[in-house]
């Protein structure tokens, strides 16, 4: 684990403390944490205790898991990272929602792309009804309006049938 960074000349790694909205503290090497742009800027401004009021402990634990893994990224473990990513995005929409919000707030670009891609994959090829169901989107159209809007967009459906399943 400690092999992730050899940049420190003194052998002492600079440590930072992240504090979740629940008050839990996590101590991490700076080299891991700077994947996150928001924190990087705070570190540059001299902070070493970083309160994250928008991120709860559960989500922060996941985010740290992601950052630790990706700090180990090298040429040789691409496959391992890929599998990690695949596992990482599994979960309910609610789980993903928290992660996306946190990743967006913390500006972790790699994670943001990973999560957005994963959510997009859930939308991909799904029927309108299924998308509403999966993402809790309430239908605010009257039947007439809905018919009209579907008609305007019917070109999108010419390619074939959409998937009605909810997973």
């Amino acid at each position: 684990m400690a092999s992730s960074s050899s940049s420190s000349k003194t052998g002492l790694k600079k440590m930072l403390t992240l504090k979740s909205s629940d008050g839990d503290e996590f101590e991490l090497e700076e080299s891991i944490v700077i994947q996150c742009q928001t924190i990087k800027h705070m570190v540059e401004d001299g902070f070493s205790l970083i309160p994250l009021q928008n991120v709860d402990t559960k989500t922060l634990t996941k985010i740290i898991e992601y950052m630790k893994k990706h700090a180990e990224k090298t040429e040789s473990n691409k496959e391992e990272i890929k599998n990690f990513n695949k596992e990482f995005v599994k979960g309910s929409f609610d789980d993903q929602f928290e992660l996306v919000s946190a990743a967006n707030y913390l500006h972790i670009n790699g994670l943001m792309d990973l999560l957005c891609q994963s959510i997009a994959d859930r939308i991909n090829n799904k029927s309108v009804r299924a998308v509403r169901e999966i993402f809790n989107i309430s239908n605010d159209y009257t039947p007439d309006e809905e018919e009209k809007v579907r008609d305007e967009h019917k070109w999108a459906h010419e390619g074939g049938e959409f998937d009605e399943s909810l997973d």
Partner: peptide
Amino acid sequence: FPEDVQLNILSFLTPSDISNFACTSK
């Protein structure tokens, strides 16, 4: 989701999926 996050997610879709998504609500 904040709007920029919504747009970020949608940008991973194909045009036909975006169009399909648009039909879900006003």
